[in-house]
Amino acid sequence: MKVLVGVKRVVDYAVKVNVKNGSVNLNNVKMSLNPFCEIAVEEACRLKESKAAEEIIALSIGPKQCTETLRTALAMGCDRAIHISTDMRTDYMELQPYAIAKMIQKIVDQEQPDLVLLGKQGIDSDCGQTGPMLAGFLGWPQITFAANLTANDDGKSITVERETDSGTETIDATLPAVVTCDLRLNEPRYATLPNIMKAKKKKVDTINADDLDVDLKTYNEVVEVFEPIGRKAGVSVDNVDELLDKLRNEAGVIV
């Protein structure tokens, strides 16, 4: 099978972000591969190692630095990469899931993969909409929040366990299909240095987003972005009476 895997470039999850001019400040901030996309890349690599997949194509949408993020995916084991180049922000401020899914659809039309693996959400926008929208546009089965994925021997279907609030669902789906990956699906490998070197020689095709004939308009307006209000430090009270007094008169939670 041929696998297309989504690779989003986001602010590194260990970075404490700050807000500047009404959006998250991205200036000189460490950017990394979205952790859920990393899991998708790992799963694709395992499919290839188990001979279930023949080719893995990594796809990223964003500024030119996305090629670095794609290099990580290539170093982990993807075969080649496609970069849809745009200077629009991809953290919901400008490009939004609808346009992203439309662009991925174009690549799917062009590459004809059997399986599209995406992260369940980007840790910047936390939308979780791209996978379902893409499946909708394509008219393919969608399995979200995958926690286990097996490629069946018939080569035409997959069995996926997905995590829900009420337990684990096991779903059989025929290919082609869209799967979004959850945290427990796997533990991604490190990129080894020899593979990072080899990745430099792998092909990255760049396509200008404007050339895809997709409506990139920002339909949902972001009204405000602000930092969470810091939690106030706690205080020690000397006795129960003081506690009751504070609960009654300061916090107003009891009468």
Partner: peptide, 29 residues
């Protein structure tokens, strides 16, 4: 810094000084 680390690794690899290696791809690593 990434370029420096990569060219450094290329050098020590070529000189046969290292067996293997990995490079952190994010701060968590």
């Amino acid at each position: 810094d990434r370029e420096k680390l990569e060219s450094f690794f290329e050098c020590i690899m070529e000189e046969g000084l290292v067996v293997d290696g990995v490079m952190a791809q994010n701060l968590g690593q």
